[in-house]
Amino acid sequence: MSVHDLVAITALGGSEPCVETVGAVTCTEVPGVALASVAARLGQESKAAKALAKLIGSPAPGIGRTSGEALTAFWAGPEQWMVEAPFETHEEIADQATTAMGETASVTEQTDAWTRFDLSGDGIPAVLELLCQLDLRTLDEGSAARCSIHHVGCFVLCRTSRLFSLYGPRASVGTLHHAIITAMRSAL
């Protein structure tokens, strides 16, 4: 853990995460997450999957899936995953993942490349259908899909039918947040 004295701001520019509720759905900015990408080295794919499984304590997620509990991973591309963990305990997640993966994978810090919003409550599909092309019928618990929301490339993760996480690129977060909130106001 570092002991530096720089104070972080959230992607939306606040010192506290932004929370907004419309109807029965709440949108919460989630800065407390550390992310690293893990991409298997050529020819090391199965070893990498095993190492990842060990890291997250659960089999490496398959295509379009998430897995894990304290540390979770979701599928991001062929032989590539994102590892998520609480920021408080895993700020240096890239180092931790690098150690865990050894020579089997290339690890890249992604913590601040992305910003997460959690949508919780009832009626989320009505919001998401105004935002992205994903077939929500096929998104069940543990689904992870990349898609475009108002021209912003995002990940949509279904934790449960009442909790979805949306990851969008940090710099475009204002646009993404505006899109989510207007869709909530429109649909709910």
Binding site: A39, A40, R41, G43, E109, T111, D112, A113
Partner: peptide, 15 residues
């Protein structure tokens, strides 16, 4: 296709 190379954008990760 047989080069061992992995790519990812980190533009927004770093200030």
């Amino acid at each position: 296709p047989d080069m061992d190379v992995q790519l990812i954008s980190t533009t927004e990760a770093w200030a």
